[in-house]
């Protein structure tokens, strides 16, 4: 094996291990059980959004509007609870449907009007942002302090000591694994992502699959929005945007560690945990806030660049 092929296959994994050892070395707290649980808990929402992104990227697309789907999920649910007194599970359902609406717009633009996923979801992102601002009279949060405890528990509750949000994220992850890696739906999605024309000639209804996939992805991201709004008991406009880069990075890191370089569910999980570990580790080092933000930005972009480079070295 040449150095080059070792890098192509294991580059990112080596770097992940290096960071892990580094943090364990510099911070006595890093390796403790409680801190590891912290990392996992902090990664739950990112994981959910990154999974939606994995579906879209595996199909050969990209979704820049996952933050909007996150916001819509939160907004629809909070409004349903506050203004319509909906039961918590009804509010969850409405939130997910709100997110699906975002996906529907993407699907219409991409499948119906044949706009590239990049441009279409960027458009959805701008339109969605404006809608959020107009709806909140310029961007003020909609808070609802007296939300039902069950809803609140989505973020702060636990089942047998395991935080609910971790359970939800794990469940979504499991479903995605089965759907994307084990079902014939997933096989077809991968075929479309690898070679759309060949998938089309093989009789796969490519347009229908793309339509469904964009809606599914957005609906998934809305689940993240539910947890987010339950956590802070309000809907904050444009809050979802902050997850975009992490989600994209996690998907590409995940693809880079896959033997065939494909976006995949397990890889995304590893990518999300890696990013969570970086954030946590930098925190523990007690760096200045701005320095920390800059550092994590640099690490994230480098990881992304490395993931892409690693693909090229194959």
């Amino acid at each position: 094996m040449t150095l080059r092929s070792v890098f192509a296959r294991f580059g990112l994994i080596i770097i992940i291990v290096m960071f892990f050892s580094f943090f364990s070395y510099v911070s006595p707290v890093f390796l403790t059980f409680d801190n590891q649980v912290n990392i996992i808990e902090a990664s739950a929402i990112v994981l959910i959004l990154a999974l939606g992104m994995t579906l879209v990227v595996a199909m050969g697309g990209i979704d820049l509007s996952i933050g909007i789907a996150f916001d819509f999920g939160a907004a629809f649910a909070v409004v349903a609870l506050k203004d319509f007194g909906a039961a918590w599970y009804v509010a969850c359902l409405i939130g997910v449907m709100g997110g699906a609406l975002v996906g529907l717009l993407n699907a219409i633009l991409i499948v119906g009007l044949k706009i590239s996923p990049f441009m279409a979801t960027l458009g959805t992102f701008f339109v969605g942002s404006s809608v959020e601002r107009v709806f909140t009279n310029g961007g003020g949060p909609i808070s609802y302090r007296r939300m039902p405890q069950e809803y609140r528990d989505l973020a702060v509750g636990d089942v047998f000591g395991i935080p609910t949000e971790v359970i939800i994220a794990a469940a979504v992850c499991l479903v995605y694994f089965v759907v994307l890696e084990r079902s014939i739906f997933g096989k077809r999605i991968h075929a479309i992502g690898l070679q759309k024309d060949a998938a089309n000639v093989a009789g796969i209804p490519v347009r229908r699959y793309m339509f469904v996939a964009f809606i599914l992805a957005s609906a998934t991201c809305a689940i993240g929005g539910l947890i987010g709004s339950a956590n802070i008991r309000m809907f904050t406009p444009l809050a979802g945007f902050s997850y975009l880069l992490d989600a994209i990075a996690a998907v590409f890191i995940g693809a880079a560690i896959h033997p065939k370089g494909r976006p995949n569910v397990i890889g995304t999980l590893v990518g999300v945990l890696f990013l969570g570990m970086i954030g946590n580790g930098l925190n523990l080092m007690g760096l200045d806030f701005n320095l920390k933000a800059a550092l994590s930005g640099i690490i994230l972009v480098s990881a992304l660049a490395l993931a892409v480079a690693q693909q090229r070295f194959r």
């Binding site: 079902s183 096989k187 060949a198």
Partner: peptide
Amino acid sequence: HDGLVLDMSVSDNVNLAALDSVS
């Protein structure tokens, strides 16, 4: 270009049009 999904296995390519019958 149109026949094979080149990066999929022979098995996946053979089954691609009739996945329903192997699921």
